[in-house]
Design a binder for these strands. Sequence first.
DNA 1: AGGGAAAATGTAAACGTTTACATGCCGACG
DNA 2: CGTCGGCATGTAAACGTTTACATTTTCCCT
Lengths: 336, 336
Amino acid sequence: MITIKDVARQAGVSVATVSRVYNDSAAVRPHTRERVQAVALELGYSPHGAARSLITSQTHTLGMLLPDLYGEFFSEVIRGVDQAAQREGYHLLVSSARSDGPSLEAALRSMRGRVDGLIVMSPALDAGTARRSLPQGFPVVMLNCPPSDIGYDSIGIANYEGAVAMTRHLAGLGHTRIAMITGAEGNFDAAERLRGYRAVVRERNLDASPSLELAGDFSEAGGHAAALRLLTLVPRPTAVFAANDGMAVGALSAFREAGLRIPRDLALGGFDDIPLARYLEPALTSVHVPIGVLGEHATACLFAGLRAKEPTESRREVLATTLVVRRSCGAQGGPG
Amino acid sequence: MITIKDVARQAGVSVATVSRVYNDSAAVRPHTRERVQAVALELGYSPHGAARSLITSQTHTLGMLLPDLYGEFFSEVIRGVDQAAQREGYHLLVSSARSDGPSLEAALRSMRGRVDGLIVMSPALDAGTARRSLPQGFPVVMLNCPPSDIGYDSIGIANYEGAVAMTRHLAGLGHTRIAMITGAEGNFDAAERLRGYRAVVRERNLDASPSLELAGDFSEAGGHAAALRLLTLVPRPTAVFAANDGMAVGALSAFREAGLRIPRDLALGGFDDIPLARYLEPALTSVHVPIGVLGEHATACLFAGLRAKEPTESRREVLATTLVVRRSCGAQGGPG
DNA sequence: AGGGAAAATGTAAACGTTTACATGCCGACG
DNA sequence: CGTCGGCATGTAAACGTTTACATTTTCCCT
């Protein structure tokens, strides 16, 4: 492994000079600079990141903590974050951990000295655990987590409002018996969406029977299973709101297998508006979540935290969601 | 920032002992161990990654080099790699760079001392540049790159065979005028797919007019544009093979806008079999690429390289692709 | 040519670990 | 009771940088 010393020796200068060439930290005579660069090129030298981080206590890297199994949604967020980070010359260190306390703490700890800040997308991680496992004042942004009671910045989406919009829309089409396939238990987003649904059920005096709330887990298979249970209800609901598009997809195939025509026999709505949604047959009415923006904002927020000298007041940002009406709810034609 | 020294002082032991507690590298009396752990917990200590890497020259991190703008396909590979890496307790350092020489070299260099090995998915990176920018003997796996002339392991997919299978399938359905929407110029995968198409055109004596090869760029928009150009050809081709599913999606919408019925008026095939493919209307016939496997194998291959003491002979692995027949080619009904 | 300021370069400490080696301690054996 | 061996622990060097400070060189002015 060739180091700065090798370059220095070969070029007949001190290590300090080589370092200065690489950092533009001070004036180096053009002649010297060129010789150093020539030697470095010839030797194939490049600075050792860890050594650099150690002394500068800067890694130029952002950490992302994820659940061990994540779906398309998270992948997209990663991409958004990566793009934003890249623009600032930062790397992304991705780390996934199981969602139990010890795993999470270990994952958090293992980031120490490897990243300058952290984006947490592990819904199971509460701010308390984070607080305990992270150095004091470490820049953190929590994504899609409960509003942080303890002082971390957080970004979420308007789950409640989105669910309200969807449920109202279905109610507005005349449905009074609207089922909901809920998200994973203990998940904040899921809880909020359910809350929105329930609010409208009350507000509009819809059928509020508890059996209309089918337990789901955000997975396609879960949506399929929930749909089958739903079909046994009598009288059958006339509309279904799935807490995410993945489950809506699963439900859709279950309904089709059962010989139902969507939206004629049953109106369907989802949440997230993943790219797939508009390509489904029928195209899926959904609540659009600006995934890219989520990643971008998280990154921006984290950079702000990095650059702030003083630990600033923790902020919460909530991204608006928008209802996207397509054919699956039976509201309108549209082309696809 | 609290360090090993703080823990040592507070616990009344030397830094060596604390280190030993964290590494199980040597026997520590239970009594001592417990005290150290207690103090560490109280102080909220965790070892500094960069310092550790510096002395052990191990980062427990795998690097991934990506193009600056990447699609769903790459995201999925990342996920596969992450999962495999996580199982071994490794992190993933993601770095995207523009596809010009200097950017790539810089990106490669910036990995030095930050990762133990590298997975390269930047189609624009040739082995020579890599060789020049990376320490001698650095473990590298090239994904979807030209077979490495210079000694790096590489993994690819059976592009040629897949394209042959698709083209033969279309020809087998009676089409003699089959158009191809090609992938990005200079891209190895794209070139191979085109080669497969051409081989079958020759083999089966199909219409070989150059105008049947429409230039694309792997993007949905590119597919759309190519499809429009295709529609001006006389006589119109009766089948289209898009070099990836993204372009097939674009083409599909263009055809639909033009009032064509797929597959009745025009048969359509894609490549990659992204999740979307089976949900399209009509469901898209495509060449299935085992994306997850790709990531897994790449990681396994890299780990093998890491563990090998001696630089081993460079290997190339080619993953098989399989034709998935759905409705868009008009071959068979199928449910969706 | 001599002096001095400014510019260029060198020296060495520091970053937070790990680990080879040295040291101290204890019990067992002769 | 002395000595030896093994175990637990401490000491200090090393990893590859950056950077404050010291030193040398350059160059301009008189």
